[in-house]
Structures are given as C-alpha cells and as structure tokens.
Design a protein around this nucleic acid. Sequence first.
DNA 1: ATGAAAGCGCTAACAA
DNA 2: TTGTTAGCGCTTTCAT
Lengths: 339, 339
Amino acid sequence: MNIYDISKRAGVSIATVSRVLNNSSRVSEKTRQKVLSVMEECGYTPNAFARGLGLNSMKTIGVMCSDSSYPYQAKAVYFIQQQLRSYGYDCILCCTGDEYLHKKEYCDLLLTKKVDGIILVGSGYISQKPEENRFITETAQKVPVMLLNGHVEGDNVYCIVTDDERSMEKAATYLLEEGEGQELLYLYNALSDSGRRKIQGIKKACEKKGMDPEAARIYYFDGYHEDIPRIADFLHQLSEKGINFNKILCSDDSLAMGALRYAYQEKLQVPEKLQIMGYGNSMLVHCCNPQLTSVDTKEEIMCRTLVDTLLHVLDGEEKPAIQVYSGELMLRGTTLSRK
Amino acid sequence: MNIYDISKRAGVSIATVSRVLNNSSRVSEKTRQKVLSVMEECGYTPNAFARGLGLNSMKTIGVMCSDSSYPYQAKAVYFIQQQLRSYGYDCILCCTGDEYLHKKEYCDLLLTKKVDGIILVGSGYISQKPEENRFITETAQKVPVMLLNGHVEGDNVYCIVTDDERSMEKAATYLLEEGEGQELLYLYNALSDSGRRKIQGIKKACEKKGMDPEAARIYYFDGYHEDIPRIADFLHQLSEKGINFNKILCSDDSLAMGALRYAYQEKLQVPEKLQIMGYGNSMLVHCCNPQLTSVDTKEEIMCRTLVDTLLHVLDGEEKPAIQVYSGELMLRGTTLSRK
DNA sequence: ATGAAAGCGCTAACAA
DNA sequence: TTGTTAGCGCTTTCAT
C-alpha cells in the first residue's frame, strides 16, 4: 500500500495525495476529504524512509548522555523525550560513557543517522581542552546542538545551564554561617564543566568568609556515585588522616547518601555533630533520616526550555545562545536551621 | 556527496560502491581498497534514509516504557541501549505513561517509523483484559516484540521475566520464619502483571505457613512511588486503624524507603521491632540505615538476554518464547538474620 | 487546483 | 568480479 494505490483509488494523482499528506493548502477541500477517507479505509501510513529521503528529515533528535540510569540524567532524558514528543519528534538515545572518543563517535553516528538536532545532557561533554570541544562546534555546523548544563561558544550551539557557581556559593555560605566552626568539607566526584564551576563557588564562599580558598577542604571521590559504602569509607579515611570537618557539602545527592552512612557508622549525630548538604534535590532527599537538605536545580523547566528552544531554532527563529537558571536551597533536617 | 560521486572518482560503477558499503564478498580486494580510500578522502557517509528505503531498515529498535526516570526502568533502558549498540542498532525511546491508549498509539507510531523491533519494558504493558493485550500480538505480526517482565502468548512475542511469584514467596517465607509473630504486611503500588504475580507469591507463602491467604495483610498504596513521606503516612494510617504488623514486605525498594521513614517517625527500631524488606535491589538499599534487605532481580543479565534474543530472532533464528530468571534474596540490616 | 515527471540516494536482480 | 538498470515511495518543480 503506497501513494500510487491511494491515488488510483481516490481518482487523483500522487502529487495530490502527497499534498494532502503534507497539509498543503493547494488542495480543494473536497478532494482532500476524498483522499483522507481512502487513506483511512486502507489503513495507509506513508513510508517513513521514503519520506525521510524526500524531506531530508525523519523528525528525530539525538539525545546523548553518559549514563541514562544516573538519576539526574534519567530525569532529564525523560523530560526531554516527553517534550520532544509533544512537538511530534522522537529521540534516539545514546549513552556514551565518559571517554572523549566515544562521545565524538556517537555524535558522528547521530549525524550519519541524519537526526535533526543533537542534545548533550550533562556537563560531562565539555572539556577544559578546547580541542576536545571542537567536535561540538563542528557538529553544530550540520545540526543545532543543545547543551544541558554545559557551556561552549559557537554558531548553532545553545546552552541551558544552572548557575552552579552561585548556587554552590549560596549553599556553602549557608553552611559556613550555621552552627559552630567552619570545618567545611566539599566532596565531589565529577571533573566536569559544572563540577569546576561548583568548586569555584565553594572557593568564593570561603574567600568571602575570610578563609584561604586554596586551603579549602575540597576532596575528589574517585568512584561510582552509587557506591554508597565506598563513599562512607572515603570520608572515614579522610578523618583518620586528621582532616577535621563538621559540615559536608556534596556535589550530588548520592554522595550525600555516603556522607550520611559515614555519620551513621561513626555515630555522629546529624545535624548536631555533622551537617550534610546535597545537590540536585532528587528523590534521595527523602530516602534518609533526617531528610536531606539539597539544592533544587529546576531540572524539568530547564529541559522544557531546552526543547522549546531547539524547536524554535529548527523553525529558523533567533534564540539566545545561553539561558541560565538559578538553584534554590531546599532546607531539611540534615542542616541546622537559621535561628 | 553521494554514491555516484564516489563511483566516478574511484572509476567504478555505483553497484560496486554499494557492494563495498555492504561488505559484499563479490568485490576484489584491490577495488575495495580503492573505493574505501576514495570514501575516506571525501569524508563520505551513505545517506541513511536512502539506505533505509532500499533495505527497509534503519537498524533501530523502539524501546517503550512508562517512565524512564523510574530507577528500574532507567536501568533497563540503559542496559538495553548499550547492548543494542554493541550490535550496531540504535534505540528510539518512548515514555508512554500508564494509559492503555497511549501505549497502543506509541506502538503504532514506532511501526510508522519502521523500527526493526519493539521492546516493552516493565509488566505495565500487560493487562488482565485480553483485548487490551491484543495490540501486542498485532504489533508482533509486523516486527518482533520483546517483553521485559511481562508475559503474553503470541507469534513473534518473546518474554524475559523474573519469577516474581516464587521470589516473593521466598521473601515472605523468610520474613514469616524470622523473629516473633507473623504480622506480615505486604505493601505494593503497581497493579501490573508482575504485581499480581507477586501477590500470588505472598498468598502462597501464607498458605504454606498455615495462614488464611485471604486474610493476608495486603495493601495498595495509591500514589507516586517516589513520594516517600506519603508512603510513611499511609502506613501510619493503617496502624491507626488497628492493623498490626511487625514485618513489612514491599513490592519495590522505594516503597521500603517509605516504610523506613515510618519506622523512624514512630521510633520503631529496625529490625528488632519492625523488619523491612524491599524488592529490586536498587541503589536505594544503601541509602538507608540500616541497609535494606531486598530481592535482586538480575536486571542486567535479563536485559542482555532480551537484546541477544531479539537479534537472533531478527537473524531468523528460533528462540524460546519465554525465559525465566529467579530472584535472589540479599540479606542486610533491615531484617533479622537466621540463627 | 491538479497532474506529469524528474529526482532523492541507495539496493539488488540481471547481464556480461 | 563488475556494470546496467529498474525499482524503493515519496517530494517538488513545472506545466496546465
């Protein structure tokens, strides 16, 4: 069943059928109805490949992330997919891992598949080495590239980012001001673009409190973010080494889960003896006792904006290259509350 | 840049170029090298749409799930995507929600997009009403349909399932045998196919212990699985109503998080006063104190098997219609350990 | 408003 | 082993 069959049965030419298919206005209402009813009768659906060949688009967007099972990315992928569908677009999902070459290869793969645009989820796609970001601007010469939480300058590249530096600065400032002492430890496990911005925020907060930002207790946990027991161990080792802290700020809620486990193992009361703060405001904040203070990064609205922006760009409209959202501190039981 | 350009520059016909593209053995090594080098030079990649039109396939698989941000589904989608890619296939992700019509519509949409196969993630795709499962068998007349944790009979439908009934029976039996009394409460929040099998397992365990399976304390939490505070409230209300329990078995780890919150709010010591068991063995098991006893459902191996099976089917091989995996009890701190 | 016909870039049957 | 050629099912230009 193809366009010829329909045209015969409807007593028109294939051109007319095609026009109906593409909602052209240059078809009389009468013939349009006739053609539509024949299509209905036959249960006809146009061949997507042939259509793609003619239109040079199959209305699909490539969505890349390092690992879509990570809570943040999982949410992002979900929101993006939903929003794309509302515009009639589908998404091809690619989990690239963290290696530069894989990222680049997947990008090329998606171009080969002739997607209409590419979305990079997470700041892991931005490197400090400019040459490792070139694949993004190069890709953008073919299709619009959208970055969620990453920033790179280039034609046809659009960035939707959280103001991680300011958000982390706010979070750290809060902790430094609450409770006794300023033994703040910052724990992170991603060396990404946003990871670096977060660290800047921490240092800024320290500086403003008259502390030496270079002496800030900033530690990198080199392991899988879901490996809660190892995170706890890591903190234990730091403490064994004589590093003092009574406040832990984490780059991610799951790291904070490790911090809570550490507190439990060491029988440190939270928040009296140890304050803990996460980042992301994921479902994990409710999975612990007391509940976790965290920073809400407005993920859903960011994803919707990202997709809206992309679709406007595909429509040829002008759009801002960067759109920044601010994080919001969600105070809960793992931190002391302001008197 | 197309196949004609390449053929001209390489001094061969387009048929030969096409053969090289498709790894045909009917090309001399010399011309193959010549053609390949020209392709390389020109940075040529074949047009995927034209290729799809000719081959009637673009090597894409449709992956449907209700909400890819739910931890179980997020993991499944990730494993499936990775395994598909290792075979050179890509996946189009669709989040359908729970409504029957949406599921059916997405299925049709994927067929329209001419995917080579469809994977349904989660038992939510199976209804008790046979007419609501018909879209699956109908779809299977066009492309192979794979079910992860759902079971339906039909040509070209392949099911990879956890033995939820036996697994839940094992879990419930364990709880009934440990500690004082048999006040076991079963909490679930999905009325899906596997949800029903789990309940059967609970009843069976009760029966074998000489209890009336119809009197079993089986409760449905009608809410979002991530809404931990509401789950805790729900348990509180049950207890207010005079329903006694000192053991809670949950259909899902996130429900168990709610149970732990409840215990915390009521100051019930876990596991001494209240034993809690989850299902799924997700990262959440490490996010609480004590750590959560749960049932490991072998998600990764199931997903790999699913994709392997699909690819063999696409190759025309014969494959079993059902493959069943057993769950494994992972004992941790929220349950009493066997003496 | 409608139709004829020339692509789009590839595959594959058939011929050589 | 290689080339010729007829599709695949659609879009779109150019007539009418």
